[in-house]
Design a protein around this nucleic acid. Structure first.
Lengths: 154, 154
DNA sequence: AAACCACTCATACTTTAGTACCAAATTCGA
DNA sequence: TCGAATTTGGTACTAAAGTATGAGTGGTTT
């Protein structure tokens, strides 16, 4: 669609306008040269015409020249942060320990955790004890509080 | 600073330019009228001059064309919701019980709660037991979880 | 005043949590 | 493939949590 480049179109238009003007000029010479001070009138017309032509050209050339101002609009978003893997790594929690921690934070007892994970109560207790050492807490409630504070649990 | 309105400035400039042009024109009449075809040269100069003037005017007039792009920027905001008094009332928790619940949710043991509230361990145990009945839970960890879920605690 | 409720404290008891120490099987990276 | 870490499980014990019951005090409501 954009076969003809813009500068060529402009050149043609300008050239055409000039040619037309020269013709007009020749005709005016015939018509007004006999009159005194006719040159001023005719130069004034030329001036007006070319001023308009200049304005039109400039508008064509600067039409795309648009200054863009980027305004940042703040949008409030709830902090939907995902599981904090970094905290888990920092504490050195193993996969099983993390599972147990999640169930603790949900309010499960050791027996319930054992049942859900198909483990013996002993195993759960071992995990819980190791968990407390790694998390530097002294009870499951503290562990749950810390887990939620560190966003380890959902 | 912007004492002179733009359209007045433009009018003065344009008027000045016209006056200058007329003077130039008069001088050129003296100089070139004796020569044949001199009119064409001088009209051409006028044309070029006024074309340039038109371009300049158009640029002045269209300089303020500004496009504003609004970019939405996400801002993470912590949900700072206040204490849920409604939930406390619905559960029928007393003032003392709510105090105890908060300390439980922070991971305190019964002994620590007793020390902080200047109560005996027995009293704390009584509060905790009543709390569990009212909240329909079976352990302090469950109570803490429910309290946080119902936004009773901070 | 009687009834009611919140708060306090106690004793006795059961259950669960938590600690310590051990040990075997498995997994996994160096 | 060797060793470290993980996972699993056990016993024995202590500490804490939780339940049940009772009781005294102070304040409010009916």
């Amino acid at each position: 669609m954009k076969a003809i480049p813009q500068f060529i179109r402009h050149s043609l238009l300008y050239g055409g306008s000039l040619a037309l003007l020269v013709m007009l000029l020749k005709w005016m010479q015939w018509k007004f040269l006999i009159l005194d001070h006719s040159t001023e009138i005719y130069v004034g017309m030329v001036a007006v015409f070319f001023t308009l032509l200049g304005i039109w050209m400039a508008r064509q050339l600067t039409r795309q020249k648009v200054e863009t101002i980027i305004v940042e609009k703040e949008v409030i978003v709830e902090s939907a942060q995902e599981r904090n893997e970094e905290a888990i790594k920092k504490l050195g929690l193993s996969a099983r320990e993390t599972e147990v921690l999640e169930l603790i934070a949900k309010g499960n007892s050791n027996a319930e955790i054992a049942a859900q994970l198909f483990l013996s109560l002993s195993t759960v207790k071992t995990h819980v004890s190791n968990l407390f050492v790694k998390m530097d807490v002294k009870s499951r409630t503290q562990a749950a509080e810390k887990a939620k504070r560190l966003k380890i649990i959902s």
